[in-house]
Nucleic acid binder design. Structure first.
Lengths: 253, 253
DNA sequence: CGTGTATTTGAATGCCCTCAAGGGAGGTGG
DNA sequence: CCACCTCCCTTGAGGGCATTCAAATACACG
C-alpha cells in the first residue's frame, strides 16, 4: 500500500484582496468591509497532496475551507466498503460547513490533485453571522447551491441511463471547471480515474469503462494521462439532455 | 384526468407561541425575541389538498414555507417525464428556500396528503439576517441538514441493492415521522404509493413491487389503504445497514 | 525491469427493465 | 344497487443492461 498523501499548513501566501479567484467574473464583488472581515477570518492556508484526506466522516473538524486551487471530491462509504462519490470540489467551493455547523462530518473529502486551501476557524462563524449578515446570507446561499447540485446528481443517478449519466457528469464537471478558469480556452482536463466515475454514477468500473468508450468513440472526450480531457461539452450536454449551469454570480468566501 | 388539488390561504390560526410542533423535544427552544420575530415574519397559513403542487420547477416563488402538518415530496423531472423524488417533506421542514435565496426553484414540491403550511415572505429574509443572526444561523443549519439527507439518499440510490434501498427509505421516512410525533406510539403510516417509492429509489414500479413484497413477507412493513405501515423500523435499519438519524436538536422556523 | 495502478476486453450470470394482463378497492353516476 | 371507471397493486414472461469473475494490456515509477 502506497503512503497516502498528507497535508501541511503553509502560513499565508495569498491575500484575500489579491486573490486570483476573486477576480473571476463568476464571483460577485465584495465590498471593502466584507473583504476585510474575510481576510481577518482567514487563519492560514493548507497544502494537500493528491490522495490526502481533507475531512473525514465521523470527525469533528475544527475548520472550514475554501478551495484555492486543485480538485477534490466528497464521498460516503457503506460499511462493506462500497463508495459513493457525492460531488466534486473545485476552486471557489467551500468544504467543512457541515462539520462547522453541526459538529460532526457525515462525509469525507479527498484530494484528486495537489490542492491549496484557505482555512477558516469555525469558532468564529458566529461572529460572522453577528457582524456580517451579507456574508451570513452568502454562506446559506453556498449551502443551497450544494443542495442544487446534489438534486441534479441524484436525478442523474436515479433516472438517467448509464450513457446519459456519464455524459452529464463529465459535462457538469467540465462546465464548473471552466467557470473558475481551469483549462483556459482549451479543453478541460479532469484528474479522475474511471473508478471515480463509476463510484459517482453508481456503476461498476467495467461497465463504466464500456460506457466511457462510447463517449470516446463519439469524440466527446479523451482518456489519457490518468485523466479525462473533455473535447465537446455541448455534445455531452445534448447527449445527457442537460441544460447547463445557471449563470448567477456566486459569492466567494 | 382528475382535477389536481389546489391550495388556499386560510389566514392565521396557529400562533407561533403556541405552535404544537415547537413543543416537541426534537426542536430547540427559541428565546422570546426570536419567537416574536418569527411570529411577525409569518404572513399567514396555506392549506393544500392532496396532490397539490406547492412549488414548481422554474417558478419564482415569492414565499418560504414551514410545514405545519401533512406530507409532501420534492422532485425533479427529465424532459421525457422520468421523475426522481429527491426527498420527502414532513412537519417542521422548510421548503422554498432555494427560491427564496436564488430566485428560481429548480425542483417541485407536491402534497402527498392534505397539508397545512406557514407562509413567510421572502423579501423579509434579509431583515432576518440583519436582525437575528441566531435565526440566520438556523436557516443555514436547515439547508445543511437537507444536504445531509440528500447525501444519504444519493449513497443509497447509487450503492445499495434494491432491497437495501427500499428498507433504508422506509426506515428513514418512518424515523423522521416519529420524531415529529406522527404515529404516536403505534406504527407509522406513510401515505405513499409504490410509484413514489420507485421514483425515489430509481427503480421501475414492477421491480419495486417485488422488492416491497419481500419486506412484507419478512413482516417489516404492511401495504394497505394506499399507503405503507412500517411495522419494524429496526428490522429495516438492520437490513439496510443504516444507523439511523442523529439526535441533535434542530431549529424550527 | 519489476511492481503497482489503471484501463481494456471477454464471458457468463443475474438483477432489473419493459411489455402485457389481471385483479381489487373505492368512487361516481345511471 | 349495480355498472363502470380509475387508480393502484400484483404477477408472469422475456430480454437487455449491468454485474461479477477473470485475465490481458498498458503505463508510470523507482
Amino acid at each position: 500500500m502506497a503512503v497516502r498523501g498528507g497535508s501541511t499548513e503553509v502560513g499565508r501566501k495569498v491575500s484575500c484582496e489579491s486573490c486570483p479567484l476573486r477576480q473571476m467574473p463568476t464571483f460577485r464583488a465584495f465590498d471593502k468591509e466584507e473583504l476585510a472581515f474575510v481576510s481577518n477570518f482567514k487563519r492560514g492556508e493548507l497544502a494537500a497532496d493528491k490522495g490526502a484526506t481533507l475531512l473525514s466522516e465521523g470527525s469533528n473538524s475544527a475548520h472550514l475551507f475554501t478551495i484555492l486551487a486543485g480538485w477534490g471530491f466528497r464521498y460516503k462509504l457503506l460499511e462493506d466498503g462500497r463508495r459513493q462519490i457525492l460531488n466534486y470540489v473545485l476552486p471557489g467551493d467551500m468544504i467543512g460547513l457541515q462539520g462547522g455547523l453541526m459538529g460532526e462530518m457525515q462525509h469525507s473529502v479527498e484530494a484528486l490533485s495537489p490542492m491549496l486551501l484557505c482555512m477558516f476557524e469555525r469558532d468564529r462563524l458566529m461572529e460572522l453571522y453577528r457582524g456580517y449578515p451579507g456574508l451570513a446570507y452568502d454562506i446559506t446561499w453556498i449551502a443551497s447551491r450544494e443542495e442544487r447540485m446534489l438534486d441534479e446528481n441524484l436525478l442523474s443517478v436515479g433516472r438517467r441511463s448509464a450513457l446519459e449519466r456519464a455524459a452529464y457528469l463529465l459535462a457538469f464537471i467540465a462546465s464548473r471547471a471552466r467557470k473558475v478558469g481551469m483549462g483556459g480556452k482549451g479543453d478541460v482536463d479532469i484528474p479522475i480515474t474511471q473508478q471515480h466515475v463509476a463510484d459517482t454514477l453508481g456503476l461498476s468500473v467495467v461497465h463504466t469503462n464500456k460506457t466511457i468508450r462510447k463517449l470516446i468513440d463519439r469524440k466527446l472526450v479523451q482518456w489519457r494521462d490518468g485523466g479525462c480531457k473533455v473535447l465537446d461539452i455541448e455534445g455531452l450536454m445534448a447527449l445527457a439532455n442537460w441544460s447547463g449551469l445557471d449563470e448567477t454570480l456566486r459569492p466567494l468566501l
